[in-house]
Write a protein that binds this DNA or RNA. Structure first.
Lengths: 169, 169
DNA sequence: TTCGCTGCAAATCCTTTGCATGATT
DNA sequence: AATCATGCAAAGGATTTGCAGCGAA
């Protein structure tokens, strides 16, 4: 089903159907919420198809981005990550990310509040908003719990995200 | 004034005051809205102080990030950019970016609408939001004008930002 | 058969690091 | 004088590219 759509899209663009391309897309599709890096995709595909090369993974990701089948996000940790986009017409446009500063977990959520913001922008500034990207940094449920159990010191929450992330490398 | 604050902060942290550090910070301060890359900062400082090395610029930026004097943003074009943060107590936390897909211009704006979103997140998911980052992609005023003058074809607006940006390299 | 796609290795590009020298306190 | 910071060059790490061979159409 996913694969059939994909084959159709490839054909429409005069591109060839290859096992590598299908595997990369399938990996992204099945790891829906994991937000994989190129290297991670490579490792996963290699388990099933050891001949694949990392360069092919990069080239395929590039292709999928151009075909609008995949989207990229950068969490500020130096890696570019990829997630499957709206395949088959479902508009996954307005989904955003909650990023845990403790464990790095990424939670996706939808919200249309930003439509309101876009409208306001359009009115106040002369800027035509086409798309937007929202990242909320904080602490996820399980990290909050762990901390509560660990003791009652007041955590001084990170003021600067990027730095925070870098320090945890 | 800026420089005095900076010297005080350096002293507080047991760091030395050097010409390089001051010039990097000044460059960031005076180029307020330009969102410079490390390389650009390097070039600007080098005009006034040719002995400086790129590595020093990187090290200084790192320092400024840790001191919370500077913030970084990634526009998706592969470069990390830096902008001066809230010096002297002014809280510049909730400012976000409008990014022109045509010319790459970055416009900063403030908005507190996101506070509302944060509140909602907290209620619906158990996630403690500490900070957030919003990027709106679209077309700036002057690019819109140019286009109107150039002709009346319907522009097919970019569906996928990152790709769009990459293609303009 | 034709051309596009792949794998490999080399090349790039941005950023970081090691080390001896030089500057600041 | 004691450190810390700098410049340079080399190292790193992610991503891209060149090219000959392979595989889809």
């Amino acid at each position: 089903m996913l694969q059939e759509d994909f084959e159709k899209i490839l054909k429409e663009h005069g591109l060839k159907k290859t096992k590598q391309r299908i595997l990369v897309l399938e990996t992204l599709a099945s790891c829906g919420d994991r937000h994989l890096t190129a290297e991670e995709i490579y490792e996963i595909v290699k388990a099933e198809f050891p001949e694949i090369g990392l360069a092919t993974v990069y080239r395929t990701i590039q292709l999928l981005l151009e075909l609008n089948l995949v989207e990229s996000i950068q969490l500020g940790d130096g890696y570019v990550r990829y997630e499957i986009g709206r395949i088959g017409g479902k508009d996954a446009h307005h989904h955003h990310h909650l990023i845990c500063l403790e464990c790095g977990k990424v939670i996706s959520f939808r919200d249309d509040l930003l439509d309101e913001l876009e409208k306001r922008i359009k009115e106040s500034v002369s800027f035509q908003v086409i798309n937007h990207e929202v990242k909320l940094y904080g602490y996820c449920e399980s990290c909050l719990k762990q901390e509560q159990e660990a003791g009652k010191e007041n955590r001084e929450p990170a003021k600067h995200l990027e730095v925070q992330l870098e320090e945890r490398t």
